[in-house]
Design a protein around this nucleic acid. Structure first.
Lengths: 331, 331
DNA sequence: TTGAAAGCGGTACCAT
DNA sequence: ATGGTACCGCTTTCAA
């Protein structure tokens, strides 16, 4: 910038004015500066610029999701991007893979980068470590999962309700041997889904069969293995509630391998690509809406809103597509 | 930082040493400084830090893809993230949606943020506007699509070969009325795929039926509409080569609606989630490998490598899953 | 309308 | 082992 000033024969400040499109510069001078900048391949340095600027914003927010390659996370990312773009805010994204350490590390990193805000789909059991940041006024919104140990804005999905809907849907069609497959019990969301499933059984005066509740599925392969095992039981499940994206896929894979796609009912939590073509009944969370709400709240916070934290809970929807409407085999 | 220094009763420089884990500080002093930093909720400012640092790196790279919500883009993003994480580099990601303007805007923005490097899946027809940056030594790697009007590192997929494989696969099974559906002709990749398709016909001494080559599909719905239209022709296609992810989906959707999933052959370019369960034959690009190669090259460049640009071309693979092996109806 | 000087949060260099 | 001071690239404040 100094070079540009010298080349244009003006002061530093004038160049700064031109670069930032500030008033107070004659047309002629402005053009001379722009020409010099062009000639010297000058590139404005935003970091330095923000350093001195008063209520400076970096124009970047941090977004920590489970896995950017997962369709749900990717959809959330995209919704956030679209909402933030109109405000000229970019996203730095990170995949947590359900690891607490990574969440902590990335949050620390993002904070040292002075992001304008944080969107977190938490992987850690508690987030009280964020207390100082909140107090310092850093806008943080939790998405998809509620924060623990701290009071912050959050936009989440009613997991228990979704699971309730799914299992109730199956019970209403006569199923009793319903398997419930979820991910690691350390993930709060999984617990809520189990709770919802139990509630559905309770409503019908029944209980979730203990041998059919299997937790701790890390990936598609694990879920597939479980389905194979359960279907070999003397009294196998006639329906399966898959508590997550990847688990649904593993379930379908296993059933396809066994040639049981048409005979075993399946309802999955989370919609996923091609689920419609595969005729899979799912509990859909409206990611676009979730993202939009998160972005809106974040923008308000960034704009200076200091009202008490808000919790928004979105109801999921059951989308019947066939797999969840398969009746139990005639007794 | 000044406050921390005051609180700990040491100089600024000493605090700096402690924060950066530099040697030359006694254990006692170090602890005193850390305690003060903790107490004051001190947060290191990376932007300011990098300002003075010599060969400073920001630890951020920009990644511009088509659409972060698209499984292919998301997979690339994830592969890059994994490779860069071990070097403590974060990703700021953006979706271009095939718009030239957005590409330019985001590149400009990222440069003013002084990213350490750029990974671009170009949406613009030419990228010579990047010439000054390249000259200035900014590492830029093109992924998936070759750069135009500029000589830079690139890791791309052999699109013509993939299309050739797909169409040859169908021709070998007796199909002659093969529809070729691609996206906008302004996208170089699409052209190459058409070229590959023509080459396959040529090999068999045939020509691609002009009425069955349909370009310009923007999304799944458009592709579905085209399939419906083509199948209503007096001499409809017996096989379809879908030139992209979304087009494959639209094709499957339309065929499913028509109850023709079992009778019309389909080969798609790009693998996609659940394609295996849907038994769709595809031309697979190894995104993980692509991402790993891109990351490796980028890291070399960031480390100071100034050798001439490298072009890597990955061969895609045909994955037969059923849909591409459907024979034409007996004449 | 334009410029000079101070300072943002930190690091480099050289003393002490 | 620690501190002083210049300085990174730019904006702010205030004077010209």
């Amino acid at each position: 910038m100094r070079d540009v000033a010298a080349a244009a024969g003006v002061s530093l400040k004038t160049v700064s004015r031109v670069v930032n499109n500030e008033p107070g510069v004659t047309g002629a001078v402005r053009e001379r500066v722009q020409a010099a900048a062009e000639r010297l391949d000058y590139r404005h340095n935003l970091a330095a610029s923000n350093l001195r600027r008063s209520g400076s914003r970096t124009g970047v927010i941090g977004v920590l999701v489970q896995d950017v390659a997962n369709s749900y996370s990717a959809g959330l990312l995209r919704a956030l991007e679209d909402a933030m773009r109109v405000h000229d805010v970019m996203l730095v994204a990170g995949s947590l893979d359900e690891t607490t350490a990574r969440e902590r590390a990335m949050v620390t990193n993002l904070i040292s980068r002075r992001v304008d805000g944080l969107v977190i789909v938490p992987a850690s059991p508690r987030q009280d470590y964020l207390e100082p940041e909140i107090r310092a006024g850093l806008p943080i919104i939790f998405a998809d999962r509620a924060p623990r140990g701290i009071d912050t804005d959050s936009v989440i999905v009613d997991n228990a309700l979704g699971a309730y809907q799914a299992v109730d849907h199956l019970l209403a069609r006569g199923h009793r041997r319903i398997a419930v497959l979820t991910d690691s019990a350390s993930i709060a969301t999984a617990d809520e889904r189990v709770r919802g499933a139990r509630a559905a059984f309770a409503k019908h005066g029944l209980e979730l069969p203990g041998d059919l509740l299997v937790r701790g599925h890390a990936d598609q392969q694990g879920a597939a293995a479980t389905v194979h095992r359960l279907r070999e039981l003397p009294d196998p499940p006639t329906a399966i509630f898959a508590g997550r994206n990847a688990i649904s896929k593993g379930t379908l894979q296993a059933l396809a391998e066994r040639g049981e796609r048409e005979s075993v009912a399946v309802v999955g939590f989370d919609d996923f690509p091609m689920a419609d073509l595969l005729q899979v009944t799912v509990i859909r969370q409206d990611v676009a809406k979730l993202g939009a709400l998160v972005a809106a709240r974040l923008l308000e916070r960034i704009a200076g809103d200091t009202t008490p934290p808000i919790r928004i809970v979105l109801p999921p929807t059951l989308i019947p597509r066939g797999s969840g409407e398969i009746p139990p085999p005639a007794a």
